[in-house]
């Protein structure tokens, strides 16, 4: 999952980025409203963590412009204000959730996951594809009851495929959603990661779940 954090307090933004990356997200950071709005409008993020009080353009304005430009990326608002009015108006202009400062990292993470799950229309934290089981909250993967250890990048790829199961994902889709801005798009790192993931998920099983669509991309599905 690729996230954007728009927060003017540099230390806080960097800490959030660090924490979320440890959780397997790829994270971009914008330190002011202008940059935040530009990135939100030009990159396909899965979620934006947006502070309300920002220099240049405030968070409410960014959210409004995003929604006016039909960008439906889920948005989690952060604010130091605890007014109910603020909360209501943020939700009214299209925020998906709202978090009041100060907050703990666990709370932020839980809210991000909840918003993402809602956005991918998953009712529970557990996704099952045939005998493959993915726990979004603990990031544990099992196949046929056997635990599989994955690296953060492999997990991110599997999670993205699973959340979009039965849908064809191009290489660009995948790079854009599991790597951040600093990533070099020309490399074949996606193919390498997919190969490694296949080794862990599909190699010992007769039924293959990850499918290649030649020249286009990959998808995860139950039936052959």
């Amino acid at each position: 999952m690729r996230l954007l954090v728009v927060e003017d307090e540099k230390t806080l933004a960097d800490l959030i980025k660090e924490g979320l990356e440890e959780e397997g997200f790829s994270v971009d950071v914008a330190y002011d409203g202008q940059e935040g709005l530009f990135m939100a409008q030009n990159e396909p993020f899965d979620l934006v963590v947006l502070d309300i009080m920002l220099p240049e353009i405030d968070g409410m304005e960014i959210l409004k412009s995003m929604r006016n430009n039909k960008i439906t990326t889920p948005v989690l608002m952060l604010t130091a204000k605890s007014d109910v009015e603020d909360k209501v108006s943020a939700l009214n202009i299209g925020a998906d959730d709202y978090l009041t400062k100060p907050f703990s990292f666990e709370e932020l993470l839980a809210r991000i996951k909840a918003v993402l799950r809602r956005n991918f229309k998953e009712a529970s934290n557990i996704i099952r594809i045939a005998d493959l089981k993915l726990d979004l909250s603990t990031r544990e993967v099992e196949r046929a009851g056997k635990k599989i250890d994955l690296t953060a990048r492999e997990y991110a790829l599997l999670e993205y495929l699973a959340l979009n199961k039965n849908r064809l994902l191009t290489r660009t889709d995948i790079t854009e959603h599991i790597y951040n801005y600093e990533f070099d798009f020309d490399s074949n790192v996606v193919d390498v990661t997919v190969t490694r993931l296949r080794k862990k998920i599909d190699k010992d099983f007769k039924k293959k779940l990850i499918h290649t669509v030649r020249g286009v991309g990959y998808m995860i599905k139950e039936e052959e």
Binding site: E9, L12, G19, A80, K101, P102, F103, E106
Partner: peptide
């Protein structure tokens, strides 16, 4: 509240991390 809560968030986040 903004000026106080922002550094407080940093402290909390730093400790959490």
């Amino acid at each position: 509240s903004h000026e106080l809560k922002t550094p407080l968030s940093v402290i909390l986040m730093q400790a959490d991390m």
